[in-house]
């Protein structure tokens, strides 16, 4: 792997989350959470169940509106943007509870991911002129290549709903990659995977980072997080209680307390 932690430019973060607040009725899901993610790092976001990790994802990807704060991606303000605009700016995600297009094939799922980077409309579709045909075959080719990268080429024509759990998780990653993100946000990608699948996932994420994409990772599998992430932030009850290298976080008393009884290593 050619990228190294040291060579990153820390003065120019890719994603800046500043003082984000969110509450649901009386429940404070996030309180003044701030993060900075550097270009091309793998950043882990951990915390006990209900800590607010997914809520933060939903806010930075525009699915929920924040009660306050700011989010910037490469200098672009994201709050108050529609989800599809945020994807355009270069942030793509996967979902904790897999949300594939169940009755579309794996290939079509990834092809939908190309939507945001392609342009032909109704007239082109009806006329099927050269530029539309070209674009369409490019979409296909790129989608197939992405499927191949996540090891799903043989399942291209299978309906998403008939894939195994692990395959579905990787298909979601391929679909997100198809949008050409700068930052890829993964919500528990290893959930439901067996150890060997998790190992493959680890390789895959390294490969993705090597291709120049920054990764924000929510994960409960501590071994994966500790091995993979450059830096980690820990949320508990909506507050950031620690941030730093895996070693630092592992030693942190607040983190140990939050995970009391949980297995951190």
């Amino acid at each position: 792997m050619n990228n190294s932690v040291e060579s990153r430019d820390t003065s120019n973060p890719l994603l800046v989350v500043q003082e984000v607040n969110k509450s649901f009725g009386g429940l404070t899901a996030l309180s003044r959470v701030s993060l900075q993610i550097q270009s091309n790092e793998i950043f882990g976001l951990i915390g006990p169940n209900g800590a607010g990790k997914t809520t933060l994802f939903n806010i930075i990807t525009g699915l929920y509106s924040a009660d306050g704060g700011e989010v910037n991606l490469a200098g672009q303000a994201l709050l108050r943007c529609k989800p599809h605009v945020i994807v355009q700016h270069g942030l793509a995600r996967t979902f904790q509870n897999i949300r594939l297009f169940a009755n579309m094939t794996a290939l079509e799922n990834v092809m939908v991911g190309r939507h945001v980077r392609t342009h032909r409309g109704v007239v082109g579709a009806i006329m099927r002129n050269t530029s539309t045909r070209k674009e369409e075959s490019a979409i296909r080719a790129q989608a197939l290549q992405l499927l191949d990268e996540v090891d799903l080429a043989t399942a291209a024509e299978h309906l998403a709903k008939h894939l195994s759990y692990g395959d579905q998780r990787r298909l979601e990653i391929a679909r997100a990659l198809a949008t050409e993100p700068k930052l890829l946000a993964l919500d528990e990608p290893a959930a439901g995977m067996n150890p060997s699948e998790t190992l493959d996932l680890q390789q895959l994420l390294r490969k993705i980072r090597a291709s120049g994409i920054t990764i924000l990772l929510i994960e409960h599998d501590m071994r994966l997080v500790m091995q993979l992430c450059d830096r980690i932030a820990v949320l508990d009850y909506g507050k950031k209680i620690a941030e730093g290298s895996p070693a630092h976080v592992q030693q942190h008393p607040l983190v140990i307390e939050a995970y009391l009884g949980g297995n951190l290593a």
Partner: peptide
């Protein structure tokens, strides 16, 4: 077509469709 796929994606899961960049 690209448009047809977007329609079906919306039918299948609107939230996911918008999170994949479909307006």
């Amino acid at each position: 077509s690209r448009i047809g796929r977007a329609w079906i994606a919306i039918r299948e899961d609107e939230v996911a469709a918008s999170a994949m960049g479909i307006n």
